[in-house]
């Protein structure tokens, strides 16, 4: 709402604003619309448009039927949901616990621990990771997608910094009242840190949802592949340069099918945002007002 004392902006200014903001909005909406429209387009629509379709004149859900007919996609969604939900829960639990512990000055050997955690910021090579995953017996297990990524060093740093900014006085008074560390974490620090937990949780969830490379390396059984690997094969089929060089590239999947997979891979994780947004706003506002 405009404050009462402000003048109405000139029509020219308002027009410019509308055009610029509208332009930005369209730049975001149109590609998504094209993806959805193309996924619903018929073969004729795609041929006459030469690829992407803005508005299907003969809408059909054939692409989705084809996609879900093999059973591979349905299973892949279950796998992705499991990995994302369980992975995020485990990752949040470990990150919160570790961040809290290292944010307390009393922890024994803290500098050493922090140094070790610092090294986690750097990604290990593919082969060492593979060897460890293999020795842990996780090859061909969904846990190979969860456990190696269960602690993100960057997320840990973000959360720890946030925890350290919780006023010490509150924690001290809680301690005087007889609260244990666990109680302090659960009843005081976590409620005060909802915003950062939401953000870090979202980072983890998006990371788990989007991960595909580990699945390629660690999972030999195609039945355990997550959505992103399937997405990749659909979208890249026929565009593989090595297959093309060799003259063995199968023709690409119909554009409608490719876009249907994109929609399927996009919608579930996009649905998470509105629920978490509430926490972002609240967190930001709480911080602003209470200084």
């Amino acid at each position: 709402m405009r404050p009462i004392w402000k003048e109405r902006p000139s029509p020219a200014y308002q027009t410019i604003k509308a055009v610029v903001l509208g332009g930005f909005a369209l730049a975001i909406i149109i590609p998504i619309m094209v993806v959805v429209s193309t996924s619903l387009a018929s073969d004729q629509d795609i041929i006459s448009a030469g690829g992407y379709v803005l508005w299907p004149s003969h809408p059909t859900v054939k692409a989705y039927e084809t996609l879900f007919s093999g059973g591979l996609m349905g299973r892949a969604i279950m796998v992705s949901v499991f990995v994302t939900v369980v992975g995020t829960a485990i990752a949040l639990a470990t990150t919160i616990a570790l961040a809290y512990a290292t944010s307390r000055p009393v922890l024994f050997g803290r500098p050493v621990l922090l140094l070790v955690l610092f090294t986690l910021l750097f990604a290990p090579g593919i082969i060492p990771m593979f060897l460890i995953v293999k020795q842990l017996g996780l090859i061909d297990s969904l846990w190979s997608l969860i456990l190696p990524g269960a602690l993100g060093a960057f997320n840990f740093v973000v959360m720890r910094t946030f925890f350290m900014n919780v006023p010490q006085e509150i924690l001290e008074s809680a301690r005087i009242d007889g609260a244990s560390d666990f109680t302090i974490l659960r009843r005081i620090v976590m409620p005060l840190s909802k915003a950062v937990i939401a953000v870090v949780g979202l980072f983890y969830a998006v990371g788990f949802w989007n991960a595909f490379f580990n699945a390629l390396l660690y999972l030999n059984d195609t039945a355990k592949w997550p959505v992103q690997v399937i997405l990749r094969t659909y979208v890249l089929q026929g565009k593989s340069l090595s297959a093309d060089q060799l003259g063995v590239a199968p023709p690409p999947q119909p554009q409608s099918l490719q876009m249907a997979v994109v929609v399927v891979a996009l919608v579930p994780i996009a649905m998470v945002y509105p629920f978490l947004q509430r926490h972002f706003n609240k967190g930001v506002i709480t911080g602003a007002v209470k200084g």
């Binding site: 060897l131 293999k134 390629l216 030999n220 195609t222 690997v229 890249l236 593989s240 297959a243």
Partner: peptide, 21 residues
């Protein structure tokens, strides 16, 4: 069959080779 995809095959190949399995 262990089925790799492209891109990503050389990595799969290299890890299997390194793991000696």
């Amino acid at each position: 069959l262990t089925i790799g995809t492209d891109p990503g095959y050389p990595e799969k190949f290299a890890t299997l080779l390194a793991s000696d399995s």
